[in-house]
Design a protein around this nucleic acid. Structure first.
Lengths: 255, 255
DNA sequence: CGAGAGGTTGAGGATCCTCAACAGCCGTGG
DNA sequence: CCACGGCTGTTGAGGATCCTCAACCTCTCG
């Protein structure tokens, strides 16, 4: 446990009590210092001045998680909150009979633990190799109580998430399959663009199953819909993603 | 405009620029003083001490809204935020082609404007005769900045709403019609119970269409599903609501 | 090379929607 | 007073969308 980027190679994303994380202790080793953090402006840390940045840096641990490993499972005690610095995390809720709903995909800058109660409300699985800043929930809450403007920032993020969630309700409740897929692709492009300034070629770290569970569809329907888009020359399928050929056409489907 | 409980009788809930509200100026007139407010503990005001209660009372206007009138429309400038003190408000989002998604029903104690940006993200229509405390958004934001623990309470409410929204995503994305209706009725009972200590007889101030738009179904499917529940002796239909005969049976459907 | 995972495509079927008719309720107005 | 229209809700028949089941393909990895 000594300052190197030894990433955990935990395979089964659904083994409950396995070791899931890997520490990259303190400010030494793998991870970037807050002052040089690429995604600082995107998340909570955008609200911090330099002295506060030092303060929060003392509270965090840099954590590395391998693809397919779980950060935490729905129902686990919510002892930690996270800021994502690299990679993509799938947030999902399971029904007892195996049905699953993906409630979101977290990207760099996103905060995990906005709606933290005693336990996590969803499972978080790494899709990529993921880098995070980890805080003890109690420490982080204490920090917020000392820093009202950071609490305010937290609330702004939560409010934004709530708005997104309501848009997702419209999608799930009232949109057809093709509208859902088109909206997903456009939204994903928007998010990647915001972070990396990406162009029309989208990396999709999630599987078709993940997309289906996010959109309230089956894997076959997602596959068929994407194939239709390709046939209509709206998309091109590329390795690990798609290339958007006609964003206007997709936007026209969403309305 | 003078201190009396003259309620606006605005009929059309969808006329955009009509006068929609009715004031009940300051602490005089119709509405209850904060100190005697029945729902204080339920909402933001549960976080206030007596001096803060005086302070916030100076910021608010008591407002009365008739059934079927709109508090605000999606896209309107978000100049006000509200705390609901009586009645029920439908929160909905419209697509351009007429499809509608109800994103929630607000009850006494609920706060309207958690996710306030420049404009409202949804339309709010009174289903009942509704009583509210209204705040200028700017004044309220300034109050929050002066009172970190109230900001914290706001964030807790937002986090709770976010959790509810994620549960609703599961419902909309992955549950069948009968599960949706059963979950809705049980949840509604829970909420009424929390506020009024109601028993198995539920008042439903919303129409079947509203329920359908909340659950991502059609009015016919809701009607048929309720009829099935009646046939299975899970429910009894009563004027303006239902009586739950077998809560365990309903719970069994949700899982 | 074989096994397994992820993805695509087709045929058939279930769920839910669409369209339509009708019943009950209520306020309006002849 | 009762007829009428409008609104809400219920029920039925038929149909569209999406799901289920199944086969097959590609790619990766041991």
């Amino acid at each position: 446990m000594d300052s190197e980027t030894a990433t955990v190679s935990a395979r089964p994303a659904h083994s409950h009590a396995s070791l899931r994380l890997n520490f990259c202790a303190g400010t030494t080793g793998c991870a970037v210092a807050c002052a040089k953090c690429q995604v600082r402006a995107l998340g909570i840390c955008g609200a911090l001045d330099t002295s506060e940045l030092d303060e929060i840096e003392a509270l965090l641990e840099h954590v590395d998680v391998d693809a397919r490993a779980s950060l935490f499972m729905q129902g686990d005690g919510a002892d930690y909150v996270y800021t994502l610095t690299a990679g993509c995390v799938r947030l999902s809720k399971d029904l007892t009979d195996g049905r699953r709903q993906v409630v979101g995909f977290a990207l760099p800058g996103d905060f995990l633990g906005l709606a933290m109660g005693a336990s996590y409300g969803f499972t978080a699985d790494a899709l990529d190799h993921v880098g995070l800043c980890r805080f003890r929930a109690r420490d982080f809450a204490a920090f917020l109580d000392r820093k009202p403007h950071v609490m305010r920032r937290m609330h702004e993020l939560a409010a934004h998430e709530l708005t997104i969630a309501q848009d997702q309700m419209v999608l799930l409740g009232r949109r057809r399959a093709d509208e859902r897929v088109a909206a997903f692709l456009l939204d994903w492009r928007e998010r990647l663009h915001h972070i990396t300034g990406a162009d029309h070629t989208l990396h999709l770290p999630m599987t078709r199953q993940d997309i289906a569970d996010y959109l309230g569809l089956t894997i076959e329907t997602v596959s068929r819909t994407v194939s239709n888009f390709v046939r209509q020359k709206l998309l091109l399928i590329v390795p690990d993603g798609v290339r958007i050929l006609d964003a206007g056409g997709l936007r026209g489907m969403v309305g």
